[in-house]
Structures are given as structure tokens and as C-alpha cells.
């Protein structure tokens, strides 16, 4: 008879012990978790999250010559509407995006589809197309400026062979932006091609075999099978390309001279941001440009997410 309460006692004890154990385990979990995320979270807060708030704050201020600033309310934002340079930079960036994103995606899908066939030398092609991806934009800009050189450049020489007098690729205000666009497309194909290629390889062979049995030609197969099944990847790439294109800076900075007549027709939103922030010491206005850029990118990304329902197929 005495044994039973003892047993119960033991049970109760183990229960306490187990829950104690669970508690210590939990406490140790929390300890390690916070310790492990601490460096990254602190770093992100100091160098990234807090700066977001600060940029918002700065966008309502005006800066003096010695780094002092004062609150000026919405002045910077009002100023934007009258700033023809800013309006122009939006137009330039818009043209840049409209050309680089769709053409870049089209060409990289084309290359990826061709590389996904049964052909020899795949890895050689892949390597060559990928070269610009690993190359420093400053060096890319430099070599293209040389190829584009109107007097001694290779491009105009090749054109002269077929009797065309080549233009001034980077100094003619009407052409310069399109010359930059060509370089941007050239340097981006390899990156997107690799993503599309891995997307294509994820499409099960059986789909193609079934289509072949039905006697569908390659064009039909591409539009009825490849494109719909690749659409989630196309959506991802288009979002990333668009965000990247919005932030174009390096190419313009390196290829278009600071006093070039083509600058007005090529400078992007980020170029203008850089000018105001670090050359003209007009940091309040620069912050307002950065905020505007953030808002525009968020809106356009949101629109893409809404539109995707119409064309992206998820199984």
C-alpha cells in the first residue's frame, strides 16, 4: 500500500524534472539563438535599418556648407516638381528600363533555350556568355568606350567597311543612352541565361515527350510548354532586372564624361542622387530623391505582383 503514493511522488517528481529540463533547454535555445543572430541583427540595424529612417528624416531637411542641417518640411519634395533634371532623369531611366529589361530577358531566354538542346560545346558557350557577369563594370565601361570611340574605335571601323559612317556613340546626346543600353544588355545576358537554364532543366522531360507524340512542332512546344512552365522564373528575373535597372549608375558614371553634352540625356535617377549627395553637398534633396526611388520601386514591384496573376503559371 505504501508503494502507490511513492510511485505517484516519483511521477510528479519526474514531471517537475522534465518540465525543468524543458525549461533549461528552452532557455539555452533562446540564449544561443539571440547570441547567433546578434552580430547580423545589430549590423543590419546600425548600417541599414536606422539609415532608412534617417534618410526619410534627411529628406525633410536642407544642408549647409559645414554639415549642419535644418528642417524645411516638404520643400525638397516640392522642389522635385520643378526640377527639370530630375524629370529628365526619370525619363532616361524609364527608357533604359523599357529597353534593357525586355530585350535582355528575350535574349537570355533565347540563349538558354538553345543551350538546353542536345548540342556539343555547351559548357564552352556557357562560359563565354558568362564572362561579362564576372567583369568589373568599371572595366566593361572602359573597353566599350574604346570600342565606341568615334575616330579610332573598332565599331566604327567595322561599319566603315560596309560603307556606313558610324555616329559618335557616347557623345551624341541622341544616341548615347542607347549605346549604354546596348552595353547593359550585353553584360546582363549571361547572368539571366544561367537562371533560365536551371529553370528549363526543371521542366520534366515527359511534357516534351508527350508533345512530340502529339506531333507538335518546336515553335508550338516553346509557346505551349516551355514558356508557361518557365513563367515563374521569368517573373522572378523580370522583378530583379527591373529593380537593378532602376539603380543604373556605374555605366553612366564611367562612360559619359562629367562635362559631356550627352550627360543630360543619359543621367539616371541614381546618378542624380549621387551628384546631389556627394558632389553638390545637397544632401537633403538627395535623400528626397532616394525616398522617391524607394516609393517608385515598391509601387512598380507591387504592380508586377498584381499583374503576374494574369500570366504566371504555378502548378
Amino acid at each position: 500500500m505504501k508503494g502507490i503514493p511513492q510511485q505517484a511522488e516519483v511521477k510528479a517528481n519526474t514531471k517537475v524534472k522534465v518540465s525543468n529540463l524543458a525549461n533549461t533547454r528552452k532557455r539555452s535555445d533562446y540564449f544561443w539563438a539571440y547570441l547567433m543572430i546578434a552580430p547580423t541583427m545589430l549590423g543590419l540595424m546600425i548600417f541599414y535599418l536606422w539609415p532608412i529612417l534617417q534618410t526619410f528624416y534627411y529628406s525633410f531637411t536642407e544642408w549647409g556648407a559645414f554639415g549642419q542641417y535644418e528642417w524645411t518640411g516638404l520643400d525638397n519634395y516640392k522642389r522635385m516638381f520643378e526640377d527639370s533634371n530630375l524629370i529628365k532623369s526619370f525619363k532616361n531611366t524609364g527608357i533604359y528600363i523599357i529597353f534593357t529589361v525586355p530585350i535582355g530577358i528575350f535574349l537570355s531566354i533565347l540563349v538558354a533555350v538553345l543551350l538546353n538542346q542536345k548540342i556539343k560545346g555547351k559548357s564552352v558557350y556557357r562560359t563565354l556568355y558568362f564572362l561579362p557577369v564576372i567583369t568589373m563594370p568599371a572595366a566593361i565601361a572602359m573597353v566599350w568606350k574604346w570600342l565606341y570611340n568615334s575616330d579610332y574605335g573598332l565599331l566604327n571601323y567595322l561599319l566603315s567597311l560596309i560603307g556606313i559612317k558610324g555616329p559618335q556613340w557616347v557623345s551624341d546626346p541622341k544616341i548615347a543612352l542607347y549605346s549604354l543600353i546596348a552595353v547593359a544588355i550585353w553584360s546582363g545576358i549571361g547572368y539571366n541565361m544561367v537562371i533560365f537554364l536551371s529553370g528549363l532543366q526543371g521542366i520534366p522531360r515527359t511534357y516534351y515527350e508527350a508533345a512530340e507524340m502529339d506531333g507538335a512542332g518546336p515553335i508550338r512546344v516553346f509557346f505551349k510548354i516551355t514558356l508557361p512552365l518557365l513563367s515563374p522564373v521569368i517573373f522572378f528575373v523580370s522583378i530583379m532586372s527591373l529593380i537593378g535597372a532602376f539603380q543604373v549608375f556605374d555605366l553612366i558614371f564611367m562612360m559619359i564624361g562629367k562635362s559631356s553634352t550627352a550627360l543630360e540625356n543619359t543621367q539616371s535617377i541614381v546618378y542624380l542622387f549621387y551628384q546631389h549627395a556627394f558632389v553638390l553637398n545637397d544632401k537633403g534633396y538627395a535623400a528626397a530623391i532616394a525616398v522617391l526611388l524607394l516609393i517608385v520601386i515598391l509601387i512598380i514591384t507591387a504592380i508586377q505582383f498584381v499583374l503576374q496573376k494574369k500570366w504566371v503559371h504555378y502548378d
Binding site: T55, V270, L293
Partner: peptide, 28 residues
Amino acid sequence: IEFPGRNFLFLLALAVLMVPGQVFLLPQ
């Protein structure tokens, strides 16, 4: 690991991902 505030802190980190780099530059 499960810990209190995990989702919130992760969302904070994700917020950084949504923001173009120029927004950080001046304060940095």
C-alpha cells in the same frame, strides 16, 4: 531554433532586402 520575436526580427531583416541601396548611402 524557436525563440520569441523570431518572425518579427526576420521581417526586419527582410525589410532591408526590399530597399534600394541608395536609401542607406547617405546615413552610412
